[in-house]
Design a protein around this nucleic acid. Structure first.
Length: 565
RNA sequence: UGGGGGAUCGUCUAAUGGCAGGACACCGGCCUUUGGAGCCGUGAAUCGGGGUUCGAGUCCCUGUCCCCCAGCCA
């Protein structure tokens, strides 16, 4: 067995996070036969989000670093909330992220074993059938500071409990009529130990077991034993389960079965982002977004549709690290990794969001030249392509100022700029309509500056992107901003108040270069000087392209403007 | 005196009794056929109070603050 330090080493020896340190120690002490096995245990009641990626990366990463096994297990114990669609969606999300589980397991496959174990606990006098209603049970449970009281049904005979439990399974009782409870300690300071429910009656069809069962195990009763059955060595989970560890331990000890070690870590939180499953479900159900894969959603499917590379997500997660401190990562850190990855990989392309017509008055009508453009300055192997140039062009409206700001280096009356990979042009006339709106610019070009180089060595401060008007393709561009204006939407009683009303802006008549005609869905391009844009996987068609803005380029001009200087 | 957990630059983290380091963000500069990218640089932290020690973010005592738990959800 290699030590993880050796596995990781590149330049310097990295320190181990507290989980890996614990696993390393267990391995060194031969506590699990030098075996390491982890699992990611989601409930299939929604789509995975970036918060889950942290858990997956830890589970997967620990197994990988120690030469162990990583599995996916669905904790599918609540048929009322779970759907096959989510099972398949989560499997696909894992695959897209590049985490391949050795096995895919289901807690529902253990229902028979779990039932037998429940019978065993009853036989041991450690579990009983309770007839209290949910409300009564709550009242008997006590409060955080006061102990609870024993249920009047707590001392039923083993025989009666066995009989009742069998009849629960047989379907003799309606939903919620009775529950099987563990007999632990109603006075425990840990509420999870005040006779927790093990089984509830639900005459509901399960997506995998159909109508075989009408009693379903609770999470705590199923989870630890599932890990035990599978031979998980380290049950990694988030902080809120620390209080549940004593209960998991108790079940395993009563049953005298293999006992994994549970270690808890802090969940991921991100500024301006909602990462609670309940909240995301509400966004979807209330129609506040377009669905689970709305590009503004922090779901894997949403980010994927937005054009966020899996690698950027993974790099971000790695940088955030592993600890037990509740913390909130700045969304700017995620954005940094998105830009970093896309800068390296995204082909450059010309795209004009707000077209302004430019007529090159000294360029021959009807003439077309094809100019060479670099596909990716960060990657020479990406090669070059040809761009058409003609008398009529489009530039972006905000690349022209009639009365230029003193630090505005782009087009202005009498001011010369470079058209990227094209020519130097100078604005000679501004054409306006009756309302005074600028509708067209007249410019002259310098034939000596083809490709963007001046033979006389003269400099222009600005370089702008452009498109040949007759060759440009129409496209819809969807500009996205963060879904929540508030830094911590979770802090609001109603997160609607935290929502950013301008998180989506649709530009129906953007223009892009002709090479994009056959752009593949999900491919991401950099529109030069603008940002990164992804071909929408749902709505884009060869004849009517739709691009989702993944993220804008860093904009230092905006800073200059912001300072008023 | 319910139980459990946590406090290091603005943010996320490193340090395992020995110079508090990195990344993001911010600010400044260089460079530039993307006002992109890149490069260089500045500022910025050990929750408070005691103690142990040659030496404490780290060990001890004490206080403060924050998070989680009262589903027949996971």
């Amino acid at each position: 067995m290699e030590s993880p330090i050796e596995v990781k080493d590149n330049e310097t020896v990295e320190s181990l996070d507290f989980i890996r340190a614990a696993v390393a120690e267990d391995t060194a002490a031969d506590r699990f036969g030098r075996r390491v096995q982890t699992r990611f245990p989601p409930e299939p009641n929604g789509y995975l989000h970036i918060g889950h990626v942290k858990a997956i990366a830890i589970d997967f990463g620990v197994a990988k670093d120690f030469g162990g096994v990583f599995n996916l297990r669905f904790d599918d114990t609540n048929p009322e909330k779970e759907e096959q669609e989510y099972v398949e969606g989560q499997i696909a999300d894992l695959a897209w992220l590049g985490f391949e589980p050795a096995n895919i397991y289901y807690a529902s496959d253990y229902f028979d074993q779990l039932y037998d174990w429940a019978v065993e606990l009853i036989s041991l006098g450690k579990a009983y059938v309770d007839d209290l209603t949910a409300d009564e049970m709550r009242a008997y449970r006590g409060t955080l500071t006061e102990p609870g009281r024993n249920s009047p049904y707590r001392d039923r005979s083993i025989e009666e409990n066995l009989d009742l439990f069998a009849r629960m399974k047989a379907g003799e009782f309606p939903d919620g009529a009775r529950v099987l409870r563990a007999k632990i300690d109603m006075a425990s300071g840990n509420l999870n130990l005040r006779d927790p429910a093990m089984y509830r009656i639900r005459h509901a069809e399960h997506q995998r077991t159909g109508d075989k069962w009408c009693i379903y195990p609770m999470y705590d009763w199923a989870h630890g034993q599932s890990d035990s059955i599978e031979g998980v060595t380290h049950s990694l989970c988030s902080l809120e389960y620390e209080d549940h560890r004593p209960l998991h331990d108790w079940y395993l000890d009563q049953l005298e079965v293999y006992h994994p070690k549970q270690i808890e870590f802090a969940r991921l939180f991100i500024t301006h982002t909602l990462l609670s499953k309940r909240g995301l479900i509400r966004l979807v159900n209330d129609g506040l977004v377009d669905g689970w894969d709305d590009p503004r959603m922090p779901t894997i499917v949403g980010m994927r549709r937005r054009g966020v590379p899996a690698k950027a997500i993974l790099d971000f997660i790695e940088r955030v690290g592993v600890s037990k401190t509740n913390s909130t990562a700045d969304i700017a850190l995620l954005e940094y990794y998105i830009r970093q990855e896309l800068n390296l990989t995204a082909p450059r392309v010309m795209g004009v969001l707000e077209p302004l017509k430019v007529v090159i008055t000294n360029y021959p009508a009807g003439q077309v030249e094809w100019l060479e453009a670099v596909n990716n300055p960060e990657d020479p192997s990406a090669g070059t392509r040809q761009l058409p140039f003609s008398r009529e062009l489009y530039i972006d409206r905000d690349d022209f100022q009639e009365v230029p700001h003193k630090k505005f280096f782009r087009l202005a009356p009498g001011q010369e700029v470079r058209l990227r990979y094209g020519y130097f042009i100078t604005c000679t006339d501004v054409v306006k309509d009756a309302r005074g709106e600028i509708v067209e610019l007249h410019c002259t070009y310098d034939p000596q500056t083809k490709g963007g180089y001046a033979p006389d060595g003269r400099k222009v401060k600005g370089t702008i992107h452009w498109l040949s008007a007759p060759h440009a393709l129409n496209a819809e561009v969807r500009l996205y901003d963060r879904l929540f204006a508030a830094e911590d939407p979770g802090a609001y009683d109603d997160f609607r108040e935290a929502i950013n009303l301008d998180s989506l802006q649709i530009i129906p008549n953007a223009k892009v270069e002709p090479s994009l005609a056959d752009a593949a869905p999900e491919s991401v391009f950099q529109f030069e000087r603008k940002g990164y844009f992804c071909v929408d996987s749902k709505d884009s068609r060869p004849g009517s392209l739709v691009f989702n803005q993944t993220i804008g380029l860093r904009d230092s001009w905006a800073k200059i403007q912001g300072k008023g200087g």
